[in-house]
Design a protein around this nucleic acid. Sequence first.
DNA 1: GGAATCAGGGTTAGAGATAAAGTAATTTCA
DNA 2: TGAAATTACTTTATCTCTAACCCTGATTCC
Lengths: 376, 376
Amino acid sequence: MTESNDDLAVKQKRTENPRRATLSDVAREAGVSAVAVSVVLNGTKTGTRVSEASRQRITAAAQRLRYTPNQAARSLARGQSKVVGIVLGHLRPLSAGTHDLGNEYTLFVIEGITAACGERGYHLFVFTNPWRETPEALEILRDRRTDGLILLAPPADTRILSDLCAVNVPFVCVGNPAEGLGVSTVDIDDVRGTRLALEHLYALGHRRIAHILGPPTASSPRRRLASYREWLAEAAIPNRPEYEVEGYPVGIYGEEGVAVMRENVRKLLALPEPPTAIFACDDSLAVKVIDEATKAGFAVPERLSVVGFDDRPMASIITPPLTTIRQPMVQIGYIAANTLIDQLEAEHSGTEAPAPRAVHMTPELMVRQSTAPPRY
Amino acid sequence: MTESNDDLAVKQKRTENPRRATLSDVAREAGVSAVAVSVVLNGTKTGTRVSEASRQRITAAAQRLRYTPNQAARSLARGQSKVVGIVLGHLRPLSAGTHDLGNEYTLFVIEGITAACGERGYHLFVFTNPWRETPEALEILRDRRTDGLILLAPPADTRILSDLCAVNVPFVCVGNPAEGLGVSTVDIDDVRGTRLALEHLYALGHRRIAHILGPPTASSPRRRLASYREWLAEAAIPNRPEYEVEGYPVGIYGEEGVAVMRENVRKLLALPEPPTAIFACDDSLAVKVIDEATKAGFAVPERLSVVGFDDRPMASIITPPLTTIRQPMVQIGYIAANTLIDQLEAEHSGTEAPAPRAVHMTPELMVRQSTAPPRY
DNA sequence: GGAATCAGGGTTAGAGATAAAGTAATTTCA
DNA sequence: TGAAATTACTTTATCTCTAACCCTGATTCC
C-alpha cells in the first residue's frame, strides 16, 4: 500500500454559471457586434475602427464576464495555432514504454525551446508516442494542433521524416538524423567534439584509447564512432576492434543492458594490454565506466583516464569530477525553435520560406579531474 | 562563435498542393456527405448509418487524400480537446526566466503523467510561464486549448488556485499547496518522510541532527521543517536554531545562492558543537553538503551522516552513495493525471464530478553509505 | 393493409472567432 | 457645394467538424 486517500470535506467552489463567456456574450453586454469586440481585444487587422467610448465599454464588459478567447475557434479561423509540437526521441525500444524525458539532455534542450517560444508568443505541445512507423503516428503529428514540429534526436532510420515532408508539416530536427536530407537541423558538431576529447587524451600522452559506443540506432553516436576511427588513422594509432565496446548492447535494455555494458567494461580492462584512457559516448556511460574501473582497481585518473560527452550536471558532482565535452544544450533548443518559428511565420505571411539550414554547434572541452597523463 | 551554418542545397521536398484535405474533400471524392465520412472515420454517435460499400469507398478516399482531421475544428465542435495542460512550478524567481524543467523531480512526474495520458487518449500541453499573478496568466491557462490542468508544485501563497476555481477550470495539484483547500492533490507524505529520515539517524545513535531547509515559498519544505521540529520535541531533543540552516537563501539565486548555502554549511560545521548528522531537504542540497563537509575535513559518513530527500538518480552515483527518502515520482504523476482525467470525463458526460481527493504517497527510506553511527 | 421498424443515408444548425466587404453618418477639401 | 475621404460600425462568409433531426424506401408484424 503506497498511498493513503482523504476524501475532502470541502468541495471545490465553482461559480454558478459554468458556461464561459464568448465573444458574442461580450458584444451583447457592450451593445456592439462581435467583430468590434474581436478588434478591440485582439487588435486584428481587419480595417475595422472602434471609438474610444465603445472601446472602454467593451473592455469593461470583457472583464465583467471574465472573457477569455476560445483558442480552438481562434485556431480554426486563423488557420494557425501558435503552438509548436515537440516530439521526444527514444533510445530504448518502444515496448519498454520509455521515452527521453528522463534524460537531462532532452530537458535542457526543452528549456531552450521554451525560452524561444516564450519570446515569440508560441506555446508548446508534447508528443510522447513517436517514431512508431504507423499511419496513426503520422496522423497525430499532423493534426493541426500544432503549426510545426521539433523532432528531438530522430533515429537515423525513421521513415517519418519523409512522411512529414510529403504531408507538408514544417519541422526541424535536433540532432542530425542524416546528412544531406534537406531538412533544417541543429546539432552538436560530433566530429569536432570527438576530436577535442581524443586530442586532449593524446596531448596527455595516451596512445591506448578505447571507445564506449552509444546507442547504435542514433545518429550522433554513429558519427562519434566514425570520427574516433578517423582520428586514430590520422594519428597513426592502430585500430583495435577490442577497444570498441558496446555501451548499449543491441536488444538488451534497462538494468540488464547496463549489466552487460558493465561486464563489457570489465572485459576491456582485463585485456592483456588494457587501454590507458577511455572516451565514452556520453556522460552516463562515463560515470559507469569510472565506477567499474574503480572497483576493478583501476584508479581514475591515476591508472585510467575517462572522458565523457554532454557535460550533464552529474559530470561535476561525481568523484572524480568528469572531464567531458560540453554541448550547449539550452542553446541548441533555442536555435531550433527560432529556426522553426522563422519558417512558420514566413509561411503564414505568404513569404518564401527560408532555405533549410544545418547548424552545427561548437563543442567545448571541460577539463576536470578524470583525466591525467598515463602511468606506465 | 559557437555555431557554424550550412545552407542546404537540397530543398525540402513538398507536395504540389499545400492544402490539407478536409472532411468535405473526402466526401466529394467518395460521393457521399461529410457527415457520412465523419461517422465512418471517427465513429461519431450521430445515429447516421453507412453501408459497407460506402464505408470502403470512404476509407479509400481518405487514404488517397491523406486525410487527417483538423483538431481545432474538432475541439470546437465537440467542446472538448482531450488535452491536459501541465503547469510547471518554479523555485527560483521569475526574473531569472527559469522554471522547473531542469529538475529531475519534475521530469519523473511528467513521465508518469504522459503514461496516464497515453493510456487514456489524452495529449499534453506545457505551460512554462506560470505563477505570475497577472490576468494574462490566468487567461492563458483557461484558453480552452486544454480540458484541465495539472499544477506542479504550486507555491503556497499563490492566488491562482482560487482564480482557477472561480473560472471553472478543472485542475489537480501535484504537491499540496495547503491543507483544506478543497482541491484534488497528490503528494508525498512529508511528515512520514521526515520522520523516516530522522528515526533512521536516531536509531544509528545520532542526537545532534541539523536540517538544511528547502525553498521557503514551497509548501513541501515548510512541512518538512515543521515535522523536523515536531519530531525533535517528541524525541526530547532540544531544538537549536543554529541547526536550522537556509539552503535557498531568500532573494539570492543561481550560483550566488549556492555559494551562500555552502557558506552556511561551513558555518554549521564550524560550530563549537557541530551536528553529527544532517537531514537535507532534497538530494541536490545533500550532494553539496557532502562536498562541503568533505572539504572541511568531515568525512562522510565517518564524521558526519547525511540524509537527502527524493532519491534522484544522482543519489546513487555520488561518493558515497546517498542515504535518502524515495518519492515515487512517476507514480505521483500517474495518479495525478488519472485523477484529473476521471474528473474531466465525468464532467463531459454530465455525471456528477467525483469529490476532490487528497492522495498522500508513502515515502521509502533508501539506506546507502552516507549514514553511519556517530563517532564521539 | 396499415403501422412500426430498419437500413442508409441526407440536411441543417451550430461551435467561436476572424477577414472581407458593405453601409450610414460625418467631415474634409478643392 | 458637391464629391471624396474618414469614422465607426455591421453584415456576411468562412474555417472544419459534429450533433440532432429528418427523410425515403423496403421489410416485417399483427
